[in-house]
């Protein structure tokens, strides 16, 4: 398998007046061709900022403070804005939680899609139109010829998200970053969208990073899972291993709090406390204040340890062979 993306020791920090927010702190992972990586974490864990860092959309006061982002061996952290622009929307695409972040409300869909095609190819207007129509048809929009003439507000939320996905797919990207694209959608529509992206990964070999807070969405889709907490990956490995035998206490707690994992009517297993503020987060394991297994040693930085064959966990007291 060829590696499409390799992120090494990525650090994205926000330099605010109140102090440095280490939104992404020493994050490393890789995604192979046709593979689906689930990047899981709660609000403020840094999962979205990781996505924005890869596609080069981190706004000041945030900036990359270290590490490398290797896309087919080329370091995206070092290339110029112009080179990045030729990749973005072309070889690397992103779907946002809110489709109106992608769509311009005052332009018709055809205008926006044809512009997106012509930005990266020499296609004529009619070639670009054909390609746009086919892309809309592919994501399951009925009568795409007519719908191309519509404005974004004439679509429902699910349809709009599909248009945003169609735009992301126009150039058959090698890497697609999806940032909670189904959170605002109904379950039946969510299933339709999951079916589309799954087809993309298997048929076109697109590597997919699916960012979410919902483990149940990702469990059916992902090959690998990386769990983020307070700017760091605390556990990463093959999806079924991470979900069936979580090693990090946080992963274990997260899986345990899903209602279907609990006996009906009984108390849900909950993680006490709440996610810490990333502002001036001290040294040591960030989860220790909510962790039942924490000891004095947790006030030091937990090292990344390998659980053979290939799982990684950042914890002094990993759980061994405990079923979730």
């Amino acid at each position: 398998m060829t590696v499409t993306l390799e992120v090494r020791n990525l650090r994205t920090h926000f330099f605010t007046r109140a102090g440095i927010v280490k939104a992404v702190d020493d994050v490393s992972f890789k995604v192979e061709r046709g593979q689906v990586l689930g990047l899981v974490g709660e609000s403020g864990s840094g999962k979205s900022v990781t996505g924005f860092s890869i596609i080069g959309l981190v706004d000041p006061p945030g900036r990359l403070a270290g590490g490398s982002i290797l896309y087919r061996g080329q370091d995206l952290a070092k290339i110029s804005e112009e080179e990045m622009r030729s990749l973005r929307g072309n070889r690397i695409a992103m779907i946002f939680q809110d489709p109106m972040m992608t769509l311009n409300p005052v332009l018709r869909i055809d205008t926006q899609m044809i512009e997106a095609v012509q930005a990266h190819t020499n296609a004529s207007h009619s070639e670009a139109w054909t390609r746009s129509r086919d892309a809309l048809g592919m994501v399951g929009i009925p009568s795409p010829e007519e719908r191309l003439r519509s404005y974004p507000h004439q679509f429902s939320g699910g349809m709009r998200q599909r248009v945003a996905i169609a735009i992301a797919l126009l150039h058959n990207p090698d890497l697609l970053i999806a940032d909670e694209p189904t959170t605002a959608l109904d379950v039946t529509i969510q299933a339709q969208i999951l079916a589309e992206v799954q087809k993309l990964a298997t048929e076109h070999g697109t590597a997919l990073i699916w960012i979410t807070h919902d483990l149940s969405v990702i469990s059916g889709l992902a090959d690998r899972i990386a769990v983020m907490y307070a700017g760091r990956i605390v556990e990463a490995g093959e999806a079924s291993t991470v979900l069936d035998r979580p090693a990090h206490p946080y992963t274990h707690g997260l899986i345990g709090s899903v209602p279907s994992r609990n006996k009906k009517g009984e108390k849900l297993r909950q993680i006490p406390g709440m996610t810490p503020s990333l502002l001036n987060l001290g040294v040591g394991c960030a989860f220790r204040t909510r962790c039942a297994r924490a000891t004095a040693v947790c006030e030091q930085e937990p090292p990344e340890t390998l659980i053979p064959p290939e799982r990684i966990v950042r914890c002094f007291h990993p759980m061994q062979d405990v079923a979730a």
Partner: peptide, 24 residues
């Protein structure tokens, strides 16, 4: 039945997604 089939379950592993056709 369709709604229940589409509910994402954490117990599910690497499955093929299909969907109810059409929109509400």
């Amino acid at each position: 039945q369709a709604l229940l089939a589409e509910v994402p379950r954490i117990e599910a592993r690497k499955r093929r997604f299909t969907a109810i056709k059409g929109e509400i």
